[in-house]
Amino acid sequence: MKKRHIALIIYFIILFIPIYWMVNTSFKTDGEILREFSLYPKTITFDNYMEIFTSEVWRNSFMNSIIYVFLNVIITLLAAIPGAYAFSRWRFRGSHHLFFWLLTNRMAPAAIFIIPFTELYYTLHLFDTHLAVALAHCLFNIPLAVWILEGFMSGIPKEIDETAFVDGYSFPKFFRKIFFPLVAPGIGVTAFFCFTFSWVELIIAKALTITDAKPVVVTLTVGIGAEGVKWGLLAAAGVLTIIPGAIVVYFVRNYMAKGFALGRV
């Protein structure tokens, strides 16, 4: 009992040392970062954060990220909910193959897809827009969403649908009034996973944007590797990118683990 808890606490400490180090760095002046080695900031400075809040580039890129992440979540759900419903309710010809094909898309190498993506969205005049990134992220998010939602929906007995139709519900009304509330937790979990993926993704977001839709993860890459990197600034921006995720994870903590466990394998 005791030993187990000590091991667990050690694990969590190890888990958070790197993050702590970034937080620590974000409160240091560039001078202190480079010249001294200190486990906590000797003089706490908020300059790094102030620079981000006052810079239009940073503000815009945070906004851009948030916009395409939400767009992606909405598109994914709109496409995946009916799709998952079809998989969970009807065994049609080729349904198994289609489901498997869908899942294999999760394995696709993002690194190579960037060139066809770029060509495609140029042709569609969507390049450097939020919509382009949101659509491209569907490559990974729709398979995952269909997978999780199908698991949740299969857990809801078909008899409920039939009863509703016997009672004279039209399909849209049945979906809105009866089915939707039942799968709401599943939709919440799905939205969380889509949010997460779209928020953390770098390669595609970087390839499909130049200025207008440039997300924060791309702004962060600017200047890394060059001489005179502003480490304090990067650390502060990094800390800020963790916050939205941390808020979301707090709200869905009870459903988080469940979502995967219910998906069918």
């Binding site: 888990l15 180090w21 760095t25």
Partner: peptide, 27 residues
């Protein structure tokens, strides 16, 4: 659960920055 969720929600690029700060030879 909340603590375990946090590393998963850090953008890949920030994961890189975290570890760069953590392991780079000068800082």
């Amino acid at each position: 659960l909340v603590l375990l969720g946090i590393p998963l929600l850090i953008p890949y690029i920030v994961v890189g920055i975290v570890w760069r700060l953590f392991t780079q030879s000068d800082i």
